[in-house]
Amino acid sequence: MEKQEYLDLYYQMVLIRLVEERAAQLYQQGKIGGFLHLYIGQEAVSTGLISVRKPQDRIITAYRDHGAALNCGIPAKEVMAELLGKATGCSKGKGGSMHMLDVEKNFWGGHAIVGAHLPIAAGLALGDLYQENDSVTICMFGDGATNIGYFHEALNLSKIWNLPILWVCENNQYGMGTAVEKASAVSEIRQKAEGYGIPNRRVDGMNVLEVRKNAGEVIDKIRSGEGPFFLEIITYRFRGHSMGDPERYRQADEIKKWQENDPIGILRNVLIGEKIVTEAELDVIDAQVEDEVQAAVQFAESSPDPEPEALFENVYAGEYTDG
């Protein structure tokens, strides 16, 4: 890996962290509506995965999507503007926190019905298989999604059609407030992939370099035509399921233990410890991200709301008269 690649991983994780910390504040100030699901603690997962994708590779994820959106290259200002429901947001203010998407960045959402995007991801991969592209679809979802029927239909389809897809279960230990072992017949989620004959690995999701290494290896396999692969990535969300989560389902010392494994701190220690970069260089990035996020907030706050006419735009692509 080049030095710049390490710096970029660090930059992206800090960017996600700061964008979300500011989003949490804006939410508490009432400037962000609806639900807000923070990715804080899980940054290494999407950052590591998306760092090895090629431009033609499609990314699709669930509703905890700010991290993946930023990793895919949606500017922080457009993510922030979407959170504030502004016309300049990546979904033009019509999607909100859970529904970010940018076709130009090959980022296919942002999906808020648990598990429902898995069959859609299979379809993206089917499209590429049909058109004989060498694209791979990377589909992320939580541990909770592995208990719903869509998961099983999609995994089964991906195997029988040999689809170029990487299934990524972000096992953050809880589906909302229900622990994996209470909701899933097997607590090692990758066993479910085993049931469909899909090769799989379990990966430490707090270490971005581990995620990156494993993702790179298996994406190459998929691209070479070996069919679907399944990664179970062990991670933890430091914040509640969404803003306003009373967190009765877990103890403070459990959160503390995981926070000692902060993915940003781990990377920082590796980079400095192995003398890849200096602490000062990382501090410069921290300061740059502070500025970028500040600018993003200003951009979002000063952006216009969608015009009233936008209410009726894009219900259909075609022109129809109803009445």
Binding site: H117, P119, I120, A122, G123, L126
Partner: peptide, 8 residues
């Protein structure tokens, strides 16, 4: 679901 994805 996969038809939607293919259409996309």
């Amino acid at each position: 679901g996969s038809a939607i994805g293919a259409a996309l």
